[in-house]
Design a protein around this nucleic acid. Structure first.
Lengths: 135, 135
DNA sequence: TGTAATTAGGTATTTGAATTCGCAAATGTA
DNA sequence: TACATTTGCGAATTCAAATACCTAATTACA
């Protein structure tokens, strides 16, 4: 989908997958989720595997296998998912010339800080359970 | 420097280069700018070439050659430079499932729109001439 | 117990951006 | 005019992220 504010495609997929699972009545397997999100099963599997290893979901193999929420969706912020997939969401600084932007208070002024804070706060407060499906 | 909010490294370099040229008393050549910004001359040349083709600067070859501002630095917004390098700064939408996010009003809510607007407005208003060098 | 379904996960490929390389074209100066 | 300097720019390389491939391990169930 392209990147929004430094969020990787993997993190985006992770969010969507968890949202699908947490709003679904039955267990979903990788094939179903991949189908719903229009991406390859293999690629999705990788991401689900990470979510399983980190105890967001349980996974079970074999026929009737699939994924199931392990944690309360009200306890999972979007930020937590982003950080799992992309590493710590840290503000990146404008590093030119020995690690410091040569322009006083940086070419970018304070807008970086402001947008970053707003962004982070928003995703910190927004929980998986706040999402609702259209279909 | 890594990416901030979808801004490419090329756009970042372009901004810094123009800022250096516009605050410099003498003409600067590619070698000097590359030196100042700690990147390779060839890589910088590419970017300067684009800026020259688009009439932000004049370029002259040969000994004593280099780059010089062509336009008033007060008339150049950071946004214009970004858009030259990266193409139109358009909000990118969350496209899953036939181009539409399956979650009502999208997983990302309105934060995308808000941050995007703020970001764009800021860079629209901020002119090259607003920048001042530290050194 | 055999088979099909399903996740696990290492490896390979693709893709696009960033970066480097190499040489051609232009130009100032001796 | 010869030469050193500098930009122009196509082509190659690197690098990381995204994505695909392949097979092993696990499991439900006929």
């Amino acid at each position: 989908m392209g990147k929004l504010f430094n969020i990787s495609e993997a993190a985006n997929i992770a969010i969507h997958s968890l949202a699908l699972i947490s709003t679904s009545k039955e267990d979903l397997n990788a094939t179903q989720i991949a189908e719903m999100l229009k991406l390859s099963r293999n690629h999705l599997s990788k991401i689900m595997h990470i979510l399983a290893r980190h105890k967001f979901v349980t996974s079970s193999r074999g026929p009737k296998g699939g994924f199931k929420m392990l944690r309360e969706s009200g306890s999972i912020s979007l930020l937590e998912i982003f950080e799992l997939m992309d590493g710590n969401l840290e503000q990146d600084h404008c590093r030119r010339i020995d690690g410091i932007c040569p322009f006083s208070d940086c070419v970018f002024g304070d807008v970086r800080q402001r947008l970053f804070d707003e962004f982070k706060t928003y995703y910190q407060n927004r929980k998986l359970s706040d999402l609702s499906l259209n279909y």
